[in-house]
Design a protein around this nucleic acid. Structure first.
Length: 768
DNA sequence: GTTTAGGCTTAG
């Protein structure tokens, strides 16, 4: 069903079919049953139609809709993202404008992948156009028609104000205080406004109700005053609210939507208001008092400064009856070390800031006295505006006098210079740059559960890097993979959904096995059995028992020569296949019987392939597969006990040019076990630790072949040397080199449960 | 039927 238009907001309500129930956006949850619900709200943002590559190029559009929220202070999640897909996206793009009221039904409720950053709503609505239901009522003011009441109000320029008259005025706010309790019965708002006449007029507003006070966020906001009384005070004109008064405010950003902010349920608002606001914005943008007003962030703040800070609340704690600690960040790194006010974790409300503390991203703000009333209401995650915040260098209680002082922030008591704080609604234009900076730190969100990569690209372009701190300095490894995925923190990797390939930068906290020779494993590629390489004492025992009381075996297919050993009763015999006699290969494969392990080791220096055998009832038999079935130079090869076939009775030795371990194993019916190197690392970065295996990639990682290492002390020493560099014995974390790693995240079945595993792939040690 | 504040730094 395409998007339908109606002319009046009240018509929308008439369009609601009887089986549908109006639901407030605030009350929507993941478990809401969407099928019989509809929402009515105003479009506050409409994005472009985007073609989504990860969804077969389907077109999509994100819009943000907002429900009437008279107070704009405490109600949470009054806005929600709506994603339109396919033709509905295009249709909506053409039919709806910012400010329009829409009625939506038959949507799907999904988890919002952007909630942790935009704080709009934990859910989002998705509409694919099949049975969905979209009505649009073009904006013309929330409760009145556009032209019928035009010119109802006249606005007096500020230079034309006459004393003791009641007027309506428009102005740009050049100074304001958040409402504060007066000595009388009311709250008082104090502000100063100006307009194109450049006259500045002071204004006081008294009201018992906080919600009736103008909603002002920053200097440059625009205010409309109805029914204000003029008077002269200290040779200047001033304004005071009088009976029937009202105020409406607007953001002062040029080109941003003209959205009236008011608690009033019914107010006049028409085309001429939009024009007036736009003209004032344009005029103010060229005034030095606003355009020179550079924003101060944590990265630019200087000690001693009083400044306004736009930020997000991370955590809070009550210090005492006159002080609350607010831990905030704005995504920028402070140039001075930031003071960390230690608070017991059970006294702290909100997320842990440890990771951000370490990166000098967390500002500790001490809020005093009259501001506690406001601070007490704040919830972690809220966006905040501080006014006249004081940056102060101070020493931490446990700090030595010779150490550099740390920067703390105080919101002192009182309201001088507009001192105060307030929360900002998530959709405020004043927050757009803050949000985009915070998004670059998405990997730091310790509780971020964004896994749905498909919808993510509609919100942000991934940042190039995670963090400058870990970026600097060389890596002891190099990635060899072709793919160009984002680098993630370990905390983020742990929250990802397998399968996944990703890049991390980490250090090795620990590794197993600490006795590195134990990392050499035997692996059967057939049955996937992995076992340790048997130690010499176990192998020697097999040899001793095989040689005990044995008579040389007598096989038709073999030519045999025997010699007495030093021990009485033990004969050493060598057998060569008759098939091979006369061929050039005949000395390449020799069966040997009756030796000790030591003896066969000595003999293997002179013969290429020695197969130890024993005699059972005069028939030649392979030894127990605990022992190697083949000695070849300094290498020993083992067979899999489960998978080796017993075809030794009638071995075939023809047709092989060169005997190697594969050919020997095949001729003997042995399933050759491969040498592998297995190491388990405990990786660590600023966010978390994670156990990752080095398994399939080990040989490339060390530039060492496992089978070569099995017979070479030099190569085993090489691995030890590399490990001692990655994780020097008794080293502190800072002494260990960073490693750029490619990680593979996958699941394995473990007792019928899926277990997530991490393996280092496509990564090599840098060798000088 | 109309007091309050009328900007202009805490001092932790």
């Amino acid at each position: 069903m395409p998007v339908q238009k109606v002319n009046d907001s009240s018509d929308l309500d008439a369009k609601v079919p009887s089986h549908l129930q109006r639901t407030s956006i605030t009350s929507l949850t993941m478990t809401s049953e969407p099928s019989h619900r509809c929402v009515k709200a105003t479009v506050v943002h409409k994005g472009p139609v985007i073609s989504c590559a990860q969804k077969d190029g389907i077109e999509m559009l994100r819009a943000e809709i907002k429900e009437e929220d008279p107070l704009q202070r405490t109600a949470e999640h009054t806005s929600i993202n709506v994603i339109f897909f396919g033709t509905l996206a295009k249709d909506f793009s053409q039919s709806a404008r910012q400010g329009d009221v829409v009625l939506l039904a038959d949507f799907t409720i999904k988890k919002s992948p952007s909630f942790l950053r935009d704080k709009l709503h934990p859910c989002q609505l998705e509409m694919d156009g099949k049975d969905d239901f979209v009505y649009v009522c073009p904006s013309a003011g929330p409760s009145h028609g556009p032209s019928s009441s035009e010119a109802k109000y006249t606005y007096v320029p500020l230079n034309d104000l006459k004393p003791r008259t009641v007027v309506n005025v428009y102005g740009v706010v050049t100074f304001f205080k958040q409402p504060f309790p007066s000595k009388g019965s009311d709250y008082c708002s104090t502000l100063k406004i100006t307009d194109q006449s450049d006259f500045k007029v002071g204004c006081n507003i008294f009201s018992k109700k906080l919600e009736d006070h103008p909603i002002l966020f920053r200097v440059g906001d625009i205010i409309r005053l109805h029914r204000f009384k003029t008077d002269v005070f200290r040779d200047s004109m001033s304004l005071l609210n009088t009976f029937g008064w009202s105020t409406v405010t607007f953001d002062g950003t040029t080109d941003s939507p003209v959205v009236p902010r008011t608690s009033s349920k019914s107010f006049h608002f028409g085309e001429s208001d939009i024009r007036t606001v736009q003209e004032l914005r344009q005029w103010a943008a060229n005034q030095s008092w606003i355009s020179n007003d550079l924003k101060v962030s944590l990265s630019t703040v200087k000690p001693g400064m009083y400044f306004d800070l736009t930020c997000q609340l991370l955590a809070k704690a009550v210090m005492d009856s006159r002080c609350i600690l607010l831990k905030v960040w704005d995504g920028t790194k402070c140039k001075h070390p930031l003071l960390n006010v230690a608070v017991a974790s059970d006294a702290l409300e909100g997320e842990s800031t440890i990771v951000k503390d370490r990166m000098n991203l967390t500002a500790n703000v001490l809020v005093y006295d009259n501001h506690l009333e406001m601070a007490r209401e704040l919830k972690p995650g809220t966006f905040l505006q501080f006014y006249n915040l004081h940056a102060l260098l101070q020493r931490a209680p446990d700090q030595q006098p010779d150490q550099s002082e740390h920067l703390s922030f105080h919101l002192h008591g009182g309201t001088s210079y507009g001192r105060g704080l307030r929360s900002l609604p998530a959709e405020s234009p004043a927050l757009q740059s803050l949000k985009s900076v915070l998004e670059k730190h998405v990997d730091l969100d310790e509780y971020d559960e964004v896994n749905d990569g498909t919808l993510l690209e509609i919100w942000y372009t991934p940042p190039e890097a995670v963090d400058a701190e870990a970026d600097t300095g060389p890596s002891y490894t190099v990635r060899t993979c072709e793919h160009n995925t984002r680098r993630l923190t370990l905390a983020r990797v742990k929250r990802s959904t397998p399968p996944l390939s990703c890049h991390v930068r980490a250090r090795v906290k620990k590794y197993k096995p600490q006795q590195l020779y134990q990392c050499l494993k035997l692996f059967c590629s057939n049955c996937k059995t992995m076992e340790d390489v048997p130690d010499d004492s176990a192998v020697a025992k097999v040899f001793r028992e095989s040689a005990k009381d044995s008579q040389p075996c007598d096989e038709q297919w073999a030519a045999t020569s025997s010699a007495s050993s030093r021990e009485p009763g033990r004969t050493i015999s060598m057998h060569i296949s008759r098939d091979m006699v006369g061929e050039s290969t005949h000395m390449q494969l020799i069966f040997i019987e009756g030796t000790t392990l030591d003896e066969i080791c000595v003999l293997s220096r002179d013969y290429k392939n020695l197969v130890p055998v024993r005699s059972v009832n005069s028939r030649m038999t392979l030894m127990d597969l605990t022992a190697p079935f083949l000695f070849s130079g300094d290498k020993r090869y083992y067979g899999c006990k489960q998978c080796s076939l017993n075809t030794f009775q009638n071995p075939v030795f023809t047709g092989v040019e060169t005997w190697d371990e594969q050919a020997v194993a095949q001729a003997l019916g042995v399933q050759l076990m491969q040498y592998r190197l297995l190491i388990q690392f405990e990786l660590e970065d600023q966010t978390d630790t994670l156990e990752a295996l080095l398994w399939e990639n080990t040989e490339r990682f060390f530039h060492v072949s496992a089978v070569d290492a099995s017979g070479s002390q030099d190569l085993q020493d090489k691995i030890q040397t590399i490990m001692d560099t990655i994780q020097p014995p008794d080293s502190s974390l800072e002494e260990r080199p960073w490693l750029d790693l490619c990680l593979s995240v996958y699941t394995v079945k473990d007792d019928d449960r899926n277990k997530v595993c991490y393996q280092i792939t496509n990564t090599e040690i840098k060798e000088e």
